[in-house]
């Protein structure tokens, strides 16, 4: 849940990048880190294994600017994507304000995407969130790979109603990364506005 500090005039929101193993969650964060001005970002922390697979989470704090005199900060987290790290994923989802679901467009990862999005839904439900109420967006990553599935097929499986904002991306070269982040940040702020009186 967002943390509003009237004394420091700050609002802090937690965004989580979710998705199957090797779909590009960490790559998204690295790209954001590399392309953000120094004064707008903090240190990126990666709790990873020796083979650079995410073990617990990656963390990147961003300061976006001010809204009505309040500094707006976003804390970006990734979850470990590998199936057996489910306990860690649940912990990281705690207090989330918005989710980017990063789908791997490659044909051989189709089932993994579906499994992961179901896992997201289950883990949110377990924590009292309703995915229909939570701000979230889908990113179809790795669109540049030769074995990427047609967008329509991915959409049909992952966003059948078409209601969730979706973006094509190539996180390894930065394409679509900021569009995805901006869209989610806007949804989260709009949700705060709804919650305000």
């Amino acid at each position: 849940m967002a943390f509003i500090n009237y004394s420091a005039r700050e609002i802090n929101c937690k965004l989580v990048y979710y998705g199957p193993g090797l779909c590009g969650k960490t790559t998204n964060l690295k790209c954001i880190y590399e392309r953000t001005a120094n004064d707008a970002k903090g240190k990126m922390i990666s709790l990873a294994t020796e083979t650079e697979r995410t073990l617990f989470f990656d963390f990147l704090p961003l300061a976006l600017g001010e809204i009505r005199g309040f500094k707006t900060r976003f804390h970006l987290y990734t979850v470990p994507g590998q199936v057996f790290y489910d306990a860690s994923r649940k912990l990281i989802l705690k207090g989330v304000d918005g989710v980017v679901f990063v789908a791997d467009s490659q044909e051989e990862r189709f089932e993994a995407n579906i499994e992961s999005i179901e896992n997201l839904r289950d883990n949110l439900t377990e924590q009292g969130f309703d995915i229909a109420q939570l701000p979230w967006v889908i990113q179809y990553n790795k669109r540049d790979l030769p074995n990427a599935m047609p967008l329509e097929e991915l959409r049909e499986a992952l966003n059948p109603t078409g209601k969730i904002p979706e973006f094509e991306a190539e996180a390894s070269n930065g394409k679509g990364v900021f569009e995805t982040l901006k869209a989610l940040a806007k949804l989260v702020l709009a949700e705060l506005k709804k919650g305000g009186k």
């Binding site: 609002i11 809204i67 009505r68 005199g69 940040a185 806007k186 919650g195």
Partner: peptide, 22 residues
């Protein structure tokens, strides 16, 4: 819900405010 005497700064944010951030 914060009591009634505290006003949320976000009730009055406009689409424009959000766009300006980006």
């Amino acid at each position: 819900e914060l009591g009634d005497n505290v006003e949320s700064p976000f009730a009055e944010i406009s689409e424009e405010d959000i766009d300006n951030l980006f």
